[in-house]
């Protein structure tokens, strides 16, 4: 490859787009002392490493950090030495004490006493909590029973209301029937009265004629 070809390849190298053989060839070219390509490589790598900052930022899972810390502690406890698969920095011996310094207290009397006090406190709290839960459960049962009673009473009242409504409808229908009959009778009477009036008028006319004669 010519220098120009290597120069072109630098941009692709920076984003890992070269084939393995091309990568190796470019690395050799730069190691051999091409200052131009090395200078270009610096800036292309700089630009490439900033690419993630162009992405819309996402927050890491909120509990990951605490989970990591627990993982480190657990792994350390299990392995009886430092860190996760940890190899202490050369010449530094044991895992540094700055990591979880409270572990040094384990085995000391004050730690045992504190543990007992803590257990007692947790036990008392658990008993109190249990008692509260039982009381609340009893109260809830009472409320449920009262609600059931109220429900039954409501049902009875609804049945009574339905019966009253039915009776009221019967009375109203009966009244309507009677009212209709009465009205018919009244109409018939009025017709009879009109006939009687006509007949009386005729008789009065006949009587008047007779008097004139």
């Amino acid at each position: 490859m010519s220098h120009e070809q290597f120069e072109d390849a630098v941009a692709l190298y920076a984003v890992d787009a070269l084939e393995p053989a091309e990568r190796e060839a470019l690395e050799v070219h730069i190691r051999d002392g091409c200052e131009e390509c090395r200078a270009a490589m610096k800036e292309y790598r700089a630009a490439a490493n900033l690419l993630p900052y162009a992405l819309p930022p996402e927050a890491a899972p909120f509990d990951l950090q605490s989970h990591l810390m627990r993982t480190f502690e657990l792994d350390r406890a299990q392995s009886g030495k430092s860190g996760v698969g940890w190899t202490s920095p050369a010449g530094q011996g044991d895992f540094p004490r700055t990591f979880l310094p409270w572990r040094r207290l384990i085995g000391q009397p004050v730690f045992a006493l504190a543990s007992i006090v803590l257990l007692l406190a947790v036990g008392i709290y658990a008993l109190t909590l249990r008692s509260q839960l039982q009381t609340e459960a009893a109260q809830r049962r009472q409320i449920e029973m009262a609600m059931q009673d109220e429900g039954r009473r409501l049902t009875v009242l609804q049945l009574q209301a339905t019966e009253q409504e039915r009776k009221l409808n019967e009375i109203r229908n009966d009244f309507v029937d009677k009212l209709g009959t009465t009205r018919d009778t009244l109409v018939a009477r009025e017709a009879e009265l009109a006939q009687l009036r006509d007949r009386l008028a005729q008789q009065e006319q006949q009587a008047a004629c007779r008097r004139r004669l």
Partner: peptide, 21 residues
């Protein structure tokens, strides 16, 4: 060197961009 506080600080400053990536 196993400094948990330093790790927490490192996490605070890098986790968002690394998770995004």
């Amino acid at each position: 060197k196993g400094d948990a506080q330093a790790f927490a600080q490192c996490y605070e400053q890098s986790s968002s961009v690394l998770f995004t990536l």
